[in-house]
Amino acid sequence: MWIEKVFGMDSLFTQNVCEDLEDIPQTEEPVWILGRKYNAMKELDVIRASIESKLWFTYRKNFVPIGGVGSTFTSDKGWGCMLRCGQMVLGQALVSLHLGRDWTWTPETKDSTYLKILSRFEDRRAAPFSIHQIALMGASEGKEVGQWFGPNTVAQVLKKLVVYDEWSSITIHVALDNTLIVNDVLRQCKVEGATTAEADGDVPLKAPSQWKPLLLLIPLRLGLSEINPVYINGLKTSFQFPQSLGVIGGKPNLALYFIGCVGDEVIFLDPHTTQKTGSVDQKVDEEEVDFDTTYHCKVASRIAITGMDPSVALCFFCETEKDFKSLCRSMQEKLIESEKQPLFELCAERPAHWSPAEDVMVAEALGAAASNLLEFEHLDRQYDTSDEEFELLG
């Protein structure tokens, strides 16, 4: 269960600074950061610049109360770490779409698009992806403000919130029951009314063509109290896909955002630092410039992959339909066919054992069917099926 002790969090989880440079080991093994491969012996500065460019969301204090008059929630210290991890993966998806996957941040950055992305996560009620919006959306689905989220819960809440922010221009698909239904994703991402001519043999035909950029989240339970070793290789492989946005998860009782791996260790950003609330706004004065640096972690951390909590959500970003189909092929080849016990199942259509209620829910969410759907082998399930901590929010 995701439980954090409220006391002592600041002192226990204060961000390390650069005096202790053990963030990336001096090793010949490749370092993987969100689908990018690096050489630690030759590219240490590049690796650190990449890590520092990721949006880092942490506990904040002294923000407007969540829940209105009478609320005492002016900080998310002690309960908001998984919500902050959700913000990090969504923030990285927006950066990838609007600025590019290889975009880098510096303290001098004043790019208007970057500032627009950041403003969406500020700790205020009006920001579409603020701690306020995430916590309140969770409350509307049975999670009271101040309760802890699991990876699946935050995935479901983010899926609902992105619908209301037109500028972000992405859609979120959350895979159900350890199964990715390829054609459901294709139907969801096709924009109705956009067509193009595609050849089917000698006969041209009209087919949906416009694609809504996709943040794909796959919640999984990879063991009971700890990760089953049979899943470790697949988990490490998932960080190597070009579409990777890391893993939302943690170590027992603590939520973390895993952005990469090296050897048998995973690299993560830790939200357990409590910082003051403020605004970067247009970054015109010294205070705003300084506040911008609080969204960027200078030094990442590492733990053994065996130390991860078994409740995780794999995260991928597919800007185009080609990206998604390429990801599916990589999953089929490297995560399913080559593993004795795959992390999850990949199917063309919903399995027969899914209930009619689930079919109705998915159909309503996806709308009209799209053409050009993929065919994938329906594989037998070979993994843990515990659904502990995977509450569906509607």
Rank of each mutant, 00 (worst) to 15 (best):
S96Q: 12
D23C: 12
G234H: 05
A357T: 13
I303F: 10
A199Y: 13
V163Y: 06
M137Q: 13
W56A: 04
T74W: 11
L224Q: 12
E319A: 15
E389I: 04
I303C: 15
D264N: 14
F63Q: 01
M308K: 03
G142L: 07
W103I: 09
G234M: 04
A126F: 01
N233L: 01
Q92I: 05
R48Y: 04
P342S: 06
R125T: 07
N178Q: 11
E389T: 08
D380W: 00
P219L: 10
K61S: 05
D76S: 06
M9R: 13
V145Y: 09
T153Y: 03
L346W: 01
K325T: 14
V31G: 03
P219S: 10
S71D: 00
T109W: 01
Q26M: 04
L205T: 15
T58A: 04
L176N: 09
S75N: 07
T274V: 13
V247Y: 10
P229E: 14
G367R: 14
D309A: 15
V284K: 10
P107D: 09
T14E: 15
L158H: 02
D184I: 02
W148G: 00
Q240T: 15
H353I: 08
A313E: 11
K276Y: 12
N253Y: 07
S326L: 10
W354M: 07
K340S: 10
L161Q: 02
S53C: 01
D177P: 00
E375P: 06
P213F: 12
I51C: 13
V266C: 11
G8F: 10
P356D: 11
V157G: 01
G394I: 03
T306Y: 04
I117F: 07
P204R: 10
K143Y: 09
V162L: 11
D184G: 03
A175C: 15
A175T: 11
R124N: 11
T14F: 14
L220A: 13
S355N: 11
R101P: 01
W2V: 11
G234W: 03
S330W: 10
E19S: 15
I117G: 03
T113I: 15
L161N: 01
C297K: 13
R36W: 00
T113G: 07
L158S: 05
D309W: 07
D23Y: 05
E4L: 15
L90S: 07
V174F: 05
G249T: 06
G234S: 07
I33G: 06
L158N: 02
R36A: 00
V6D: 06
